[in-house]
């Protein structure tokens, strides 16, 4: 019996934010470089927004890893929702001050003013839509001091649009909207991802028709695609071990794509 090529392929699509696994399609690659250049410009704030699953977190993680070698940069993937905790974390990371008790915005500003930093630290905040309006307002005031540069990601919803309008409209130096992939981009994404993990046989199984079906089901959303393909290779793996006659290794079966979509909830039966 042949080795199970589907097990490795399945793990490629685990929903883990890892900069090393980041696959950039051409369009996003251009945006990324443009955004990276903007970081070096005298800006107050950068905004990265888009619908869930469009790759914002991955984008931010990649940016963090790329900037790490040349800039002082801090990434907060999980939002710190408590004000005091937020400022205490910043004070500890940026200013190397371990503050006992509560630290409010005014106290943090005083500490910041007393510290004469010869660089502008870059703070990357993921999932910023989870911060309260008050905290967002304080972040805005902090960015106005030009002593800290903020790069934040937001889910593009009605509410987040409002936040962007009210708090960041005049301050954002640059913003990028990430969108879902087109069918051709999705094919590149899937194949690049598999080939990066040396799953060449699995990568070759993705023909235009099967990618089109996947795109129809996921609308090019990377998170949904990852979920779907994880289940798809799980099913393939199952058949490979228990009933290999039911599968072929030439192309991805539409039936198994649809079964995966049913299992992940993309198709409601």
């Amino acid at each position: 019996m042949k080795s199970n090529i589907f097990k490795n392929s399945k793990n490629v699509f685990l929903d883990i934010v890892n900069a090393e696994d980041y696959i950039q399609i051409d369009r996003v690659s251009k945006m990324y470089h443009s955004f990276k250049d903007s970081v070096n410009k005298p800006l107050k704030m950068l905004l990265l927004y888009g619908k869930p699953g469009t790759g914002k977190s991955m984008f931010l993680t990649k940016l963090y890893h790329d900037l790490l070698s040349s800039r002082i940069v801090y990434l907060y993937q999980t939002p710190i929702l408590d004000d005091s905790e937020f400022f205490k974390t910043l004070a500890k990371d940026i200013l190397d001050v371990k503050y006992q008790g509560d630290l409010n915005f005014t106290q943090f500003m005083k500490i910041l003013e007393n510290r004469a930093l010869d660089y502008v630290p870059i703070v990357l905040l993921d999932e910023a839509q989870l911060y309260s309006n008050f905290l967002i307002e304080k972040i805005r005031l902090l960015s106005d001091t030009r002593k800290i540069k903020f790069v934040i990601t937001l889910h593009k919803t009605e509410k987040e649009d409002l936040i962007a309008k009210e708090h960041f409209q005049t301050r954002i130096w640059d913003s990028i909207e990430l969108k879902n992939a087109s069918a051709s981009e999705l094919k590149v994404y899937i194949q690049k991802k598999l080939m990066k993990a040396n799953c060449f046989d699995s990568a070759n199984m993705f023909k235009d028709s099967s990618v089109k079906l996947i795109h129809n089901l996921t609308h090019g959303n990377y998170r949904d695609t990852n979920k779907l393909l994880y289940i798809l290779f799980d099913i393939y793996s199952h058949y490979h071990e228990n009933n290999p006659a039911k599968i072929n290794t030439i192309s991805i079966s539409n039936k198994i794509i649809e079964m995966s979509a049913i299992h992940t909830g993309l198709i409601h039966v």
Partner: peptide
């Protein structure tokens, strides 16, 4: 994990419906 037989049955239902 998933029950492959159940999944196949659901898929059949889905195809009939579609």
């Amino acid at each position: 994990m998933f029950d492959i037989n159940e999944l196949e049955r659901k898929w059949l239902t889905y195809k009939i419906k579609s």
